[in-house]
């Protein structure tokens, strides 16, 4: 078995016989041979919300599967599983990404943030989560984790986003209940701006 650790993604040293043989053939004269992993499960450590999760995954395991099935973090949702809905949105080193179209192995060494990581350790919610509650910015709630992560990503780079900036940042997130207005209002309020329609509950 090979090891692909947090501290050194380069630790993916080919250690089984088959892998060594294949990399030897493929490497040619380009110096170090390419590393070869799988198809059987390999050791992988992912850092999610500041916590290290050790797991054994096949190379074909997506980040979404690793989070939900191996790290037990089911806040990130699988909906379309094709990058079209945004339900599986996470931050990888602070950058918004769809976890269903990422291989878990590609995230070794990265700092991953899921919806579970938005609140503080003491349970204090992220200002956007508070605003979602106040604005009733969800109906069935299934898309909500993705919207929260996309909104938190926007807020980290743009403290006072305009409505078009909010719409742009959330363009990849679909809410089939159609709660968009309340979601936009929540982001506006969480960034200290006036909601579009004053529908807040006093």
């Amino acid at each position: 078995m090979q090891s692909l650790g947090v501290s050194a993604a380069a630790a993916s040293v080919a250690a089984n016989a088959e892998a060594t043989a294949k990399s030897g053939r493929a490497g040619g004269s380009d110096g170090d041979a390419p590393s070869v992993m799988g198809p059987n499960p390999i050791d992988l450590t992912l850092t999610v919300n500041g916590v290290k999760h050790a797991m054994k995954v096949e190379p074909c395991t997506t980040l979404l599967e690793a989070l939900r099935l191996h790290a037990g973090l089911t806040g990130t949702k699988e909906i379309c599983d094709r990058g079209s809905c945004g339900g599986c949105s996470v931050l990888i080193d602070g950058v918004l990404a769809v976890s269903c179209l990422m291989l878990a192995i590609d995230c070794a060494g990265a700092s991953i943030t899921t919806v579970e990581g938005l609140a503080k350790a003491d349970g204090t919610l992220h200002p956007l989560q508070e605003a979602f509650i106040r604005h009733d910015a969800l109906q069935c709630g299934y898309c909500t984790p993705g919207f929260l992560v996309a909104g938190a990503w926007l807020m980290a780079s743009t403290p006072k986003p305009t409505l078009p900036q909010i719409q742009q940042a959330m363009a990849g997130n679909i809410c089939r209940c159609g709660t968009y207005t309340n979601i936009f209002n929540a982001v506006l309020e969480a960034t200290g701006q006036r909601p579009l329609i004053d529908g807040t509950i006093a």
Binding site: G28, D30, P34, P59
Partner: peptide, 18 residues
């Protein structure tokens, strides 16, 4: 997805050889 071997080349030239 079917299981596969993941090859991590160290250069584009190495990738081309694989």
């Amino acid at each position: 997805m079917n299981p596969f071997v993941l090859v991590q080349p160290r250069s584009h030239a190495q990738a081309a050889k694989v």
